[in-house]
Each structure stands twice: as C-alpha cells, then as structure tokens.
Design a protein around this nucleic acid. Sequence first.
DNA 1: GGCATATAAAGTGCATGCATGTTTTTTGCC
DNA 2: GGCAAAAAACATGCATGCACTTTATATGCC
Lengths: 252, 252
Amino acid sequence: MVRDRGENGSSDKVGTICRALRRAIIEQALEPGAKLPEDALGERFGVSRTIARHALGQLAAEGLVELRRNRIAVVATPSWQEARDTFDIRIELERLVVRQLAGRLSKAQLATLRGHVDAEDAARGGPDAVSIRLATEFHVLLATMTESPVLIRYVSEIAYRCCLTLSLFSRPHSSECAINEHRLLIDALEAGDGEKVASLMHHHLDSVAERALVAQAKPRGRDIMDILAPYADMTPAPAGGPGRKRRLDAAE
Amino acid sequence: MVRDRGENGSSDKVGTICRALRRAIIEQALEPGAKLPEDALGERFGVSRTIARHALGQLAAEGLVELRRNRIAVVATPSWQEARDTFDIRIELERLVVRQLAGRLSKAQLATLRGHVDAEDAARGGPDAVSIRLATEFHVLLATMTESPVLIRYVSEIAYRCCLTLSLFSRPHSSECAINEHRLLIDALEAGDGEKVASLMHHHLDSVAERALVAQAKPRGRDIMDILAPYADMTPAPAGGPGRKRRLDAAE
DNA sequence: GGCATATAAAGTGCATGCATGTTTTTTGCC
DNA sequence: GGCAAAAAACATGCATGCACTTTATATGCC
C-alpha cells in the first residue's frame, strides 16, 4: 500500500530503469561522472530514448544524475561541501525516524532489522560496494518502518545521495564499526528511549560522515588534474600503448 | 550560480512549465484534484505533449502532482496524516536552516528579509492565496540564504507541499500572527543565538500547522462523499438544472 | 611535425504518429 | 422514461524522425 510513491507513478518501464540505474550508481558500477547517453540506456533496457530520457529526468530530480543541456547526462559528482550539507540534513531526518520508531517496533520488525545487520556482517568479506549498499539499505529499511511516505521518500533519496558521496570520497571503506553501531541502534530502539536513540543515530551518522569526509577539501581524485598530477613528468608511453582500451568514462 | 538545480537541468521549456504549474498550484488556481491533461498543458504552453509529460514527471517527483498509469494527472491531494508528517519534516529542516543562518546574515540580507515581510504585510487585504504564497516564499528565501543547494531544494520542495496542504485544510487563513512571527524570527537571526532562533522557528511552524490541521481527521471536503452528505436527502434538482456548467474539476 | 580549421560522427531537443486504455456519450432494449 | 451495452471521443504510453548542438576526427596550412 504505502509502497511506490518513490518513483513517479508513471509506467513501470521508467521505474525499472530508475531502479536499475540507482542501484548501479550506489554500487559504484557507475562511478560519479560516468556518462549516461540516452541511446545506450534505451538500447540496453529495450526502450526508446524517450523513456530513457524520462528516467534520467527522475534521477536528476533525486540528485543522482546531472543533466546539462545538449550534453550527455552523467552520474552526479557532489562537491565536498554538498556532501557535508547532505549529511547534516540526513542526520536531522534520521533522528526524526528513530524518534518515531523508538519503542514502537514489533518483534517481527526488530527481527527483520537484526536479520539485515546479519546480512551486512556476512558481506564484510565481499566487495566494498555491497557493504555500502547494505548499510544504506539498513537506513532505508528503518525509514520504511515509519510508514510515512514523505519521510520514507526523503530519507531514501538522501541516503542514496550520501551513498554516492561515500563512494566518491572514502575509498578504504571501514564499515566494521558501522555495523556494530547498527546493532546498538536496534537495541536502543527496542528499549524505547526516543532521545537516547536519536542521539545514537546522530553520532552514528556523524562518524560515518567523519570517516568519509575527514577534512578533505577536494574530492579524492575525480578531478582529472589531480589524478594526473603524479604522472605529469613521466615519459609519454611505456610501450604498453596500443592495448590500452579507451575506457576512461568517469571523469570524461 | 547556486541557482537552478531545483528543476531537472534539462531544457528551459520544461522548467518554465514546472514553475508555472507550481505557482498555480500553490496559489490554488489549481486546486488539489484538478486535472492536468498533457494535451491541454502542451497547447497552453506551446509545446508538445512530450514536454508537458516530462514536466508532470518532475512535479510528481516533487510530490505536487499525482501520476496514475493511463489516467489524467491530477494535482496532489495529501492526506491529513501526510500533511502532519510533512510538517514534522519541515520543522527539522528549517531548524537546520536558521541554525546555519543565525548571526551570519549581512545587513543587506536582513533588509531583504524585512522587505519581504513588508510585502506580506501589504498583501494582507488581498486574496488568501497570495498571502499563503508569500509566507511560503519567506521560508524559501531563508533557505536560499544558506547557499546550500541540497538544503534549498529540500526546504523549497517541502514548503510547497505544506503550502498545498494548507490550501486543502485551512480555508480561513489566519496569516496575521504568522507575519509577526516572521519579524521575530528575523530579529532573532540578527541577534545570533542559534538555539533560540531554532526554537522560534519550531514554534512558528508548529503553530502554523496547528492553525491548519487542528485535529481534523479528514480533509475538509475534498472527499465527494463528505461534500454531499448534507445534501443527500434533498430533492433531485431545484429546476436550475440546464444552466449548470459542468465545472467540477477538483474532486472529479 | 604541430596547430588551427573544416568535416563527419554522435547525441540531445522536440514534435508527431500510432497503439492502447479510459471516460463519456449514444444507442438499443425493456 | 430508465438502465445496460456499444461506440465514439478522449487521453495516455511509447517509438520514430528530423533539426540542431556538441564532440571527435580528419584535413590543410605553415
């Protein structure tokens, strides 16, 4: 019932593409700056450019994609400042979530949450991208339990944006402590002290942001100039030239 | 510079339509439930259905429009519960805004704000719709001064949704006190105590919501059954039949 | 050979057309 | 005249086509 209302409500084709792209983005299969040509998307998903275009529009409204007139759409590349601001908003929103949830979750819901954290635990050995996605989905799951469509939508949206940001700024993802914090959060929710759990959430998100955005004034390398700086004085090509697939994509 | 990034970034045609519709909605020129056929919009704005459709998609993403498959799009009709939730979110977001702004506004900015409130004052005699719009725009103006694109976007979006809600639930708009609260807010912002002004904002929005949503369990009449209840036992038609223009529109 | 310019390729911006589904009107029946 | 079914009108869902802009490639000049 409460479902949907995250997409636009239009067809399912647009929704499908949105979901697929969203997931690809937050799993870093599509890195920030990666090009998203309408034709390619259309062909890939078996629809016309019209639909692909519409999907890109939705994603742009969510802030996951950047649309520039007459230019190929690209995965959004939030600035450090935007990242910081986004986290600030997220903190307030998620404080609201847990305050509404404290002491009001059923046993089944608590079990669901703990199950999810177990999944996070299980994914610890695997690729970073999956860990980040699962961590994000934990928060979305929490929001879903408020059953407030508006809150669900905003938390999801902003959590995905934060996810994108994390993939941009923090390469060595340290999710171990985060997982533990998720467990503490669930316990506090069960105990039921609203302010206590709000404060826990605040510190949790604060430290996630901190771990990622440690006083880094610039993105860690999305800027082509930064990436190339160390190589600037190397000789043109170390003979391994021809086989190099032209696969830059991200960062143009 | 910081401008835009509220639309989608695509053409300007889509943006123009979005702006126009948004304004029409928050001024109640288009009431909740009003139909928005693609052809009509396209013709009105001199574009094809494709563009009108895209614009509707954007507005749906903002929650101002409801899109149902194969059905004419309509202006959103938020439920009472959604309205309450929306205001809760808004409170947190705007507390964030004023906390960031407290003591940091230039003289020019303070003057701009006071000028806006003067405009609100001047509009007191006029139509309710304009008062509501101006009050909403005051909050958007505040958000803009944070220069945080993310915050600006979310506050604007949610303020417009609240605006829509207000038009739905509170007919006798009592904006006089709100205007005064705006002045107090500005003074507190100038003084610079972040927590003080956050608390002021909290109470301001709380009372706005309260004035509008006073324990009303259902929308004040958007439901056709409610509207018709008092008339249910009247005779079919009091002879004034033929001339009645079929102008229901809202509430189908 | 290096750089500016011209040319081709690729991509978006947008309107139009047809298929399909929904709403209203008309028709037929009682 | 009142009601149910059929048909017309209406509206969306989507693909395709063309014009225009940007980007990549090739050409020509020095």
